[in-house]
Amino acid sequence: MTEEERRMLDTAPDESMVCKVCHRALAFIKAKDGSESWEHFAQDALVGHKPVPVNAKTGKLLGRCDFCNTDLETEIWFLPVSEFLAGIDPRTGRMQAYKDDWAACPDCAPLIDANQWSALARRTQSVWEAAHAVPAPQDRITGWRQLQRLVRRNISGSLYRVE
C-alpha cells in the first residue's frame, strides 16, 4: 500500500454507518476535493431515497452476505479481513476501502472455508443473475473476482459463526 493510500485510509471514520431509512450499510466516500459523504453501496443505489446516515451501533442494520449479496437471517458467518484499499477512481478521486470482518451466508461460508474461490465467484454471479433475470455484465463479473482476490490477500483469521 502506498503512503497516499495509507493516508486516505487513515482519514476514514472509525465508526460504521447505516441508512436510517433502509437499514443498509453505507459507504464512506472521500472525494479528491476533500469532501466526505456516506452513500449507498452500488447494490442499494436504486433504493429510491437519499441515504440518512446513523451510527451502525444505534441503527438497526439489515445484514447482507458480503460475497453473494443475499440477506442474512439467523446463521451468519464472519471472515476476519484486514483493512484494505480496493481502488481510487482516477476521475473523481473517490476511494473504495474496506475494513472489518466480512459477513458470509450459510451457502458462501463453506466455499470460503474450503478455499473454493472460483466456485464462490460463480455463486456470486448466479445469485446476481437470479435476482436480475439477465446475464451479469462482464465488468461486474471481473469486479467481483478482483474484489475477492483482494479479500483473500487480506484475510487475517479463520472463518467463524455467530448465532
Rank of each mutant, 00 (worst) to 15 (best):
F84V: 09
V54W: 02
L120F: 04
A136N: 04
P135E: 12
R6E: 13
D100W: 06
H49E: 07
M17K: 09
N115A: 15
M8R: 12
K99T: 08
L147R: 12
R123C: 01
E83L: 12
G48V: 06
I29W: 01
G59F: 05
W117P: 02
R94V: 05
P53Y: 02
I76H: 07
Q146C: 06
S156I: 04
M95G: 05
D66S: 07
A133D: 14
V134Q: 14
W38N: 08
Y98C: 06
L9F: 07
L62W: 08
T74L: 04
A119D: 12
F28Q: 14
E36K: 14
L61Y: 03
D33L: 09
D44G: 05
D71Q: 06
L79D: 00
M8W: 10
D71S: 10
R140T: 06
L111V: 10
W102Q: 02
F84N: 03
G157W: 11
K99N: 08
E73T: 13
G93M: 04
S156H: 06
L79M: 08
V134E: 15
A130W: 03
W117L: 10
Q148V: 13
C22Q: 05
V81M: 05
D107P: 00
A114L: 12
L85W: 03
L9H: 01
D66K: 03
A131M: 12
M1V: 13
A12C: 13
V127Q: 05
P110N: 11
F84S: 04
T142E: 11
G143M: 06
A25M: 07
M17N: 01
E36V: 15
I88F: 05
R161G: 05
N115Q: 15
T70N: 07
I29L: 10
L9M: 15
Q146E: 13
R140K: 14
T142Y: 07
F78K: 09
H40Y: 10
T74E: 14
T70Q: 12
V162F: 14
L147E: 03
S35M: 08
E15F: 08
S35L: 07
M95P: 00
L72S: 04
D10P: 02
S82P: 04
S82K: 15
E15R: 14
R64I: 10
R24N: 07
W144S: 01
R145N: 09
Q43I: 11
M95F: 07
P13W: 07
T11N: 11
W144Y: 14
K32D: 11
R145L: 08
C68F: 04
A25Q: 03
L150Y: 03
D10G: 08
G63M: 11
P13K: 04
W38I: 05
E75A: 12
L26R: 01
A131G: 13
V54P: 00
G48T: 05
R6Y: 03
T142K: 15
V127F: 02
V162I: 13
W77D: 00
S16G: 12
R123I: 02
R24L: 09
L159N: 03
H132P: 00
K20G: 01
V18F: 04
L79C: 05
R149K: 13
P137N: 10
R7L: 11
K60R: 15
E73N: 11
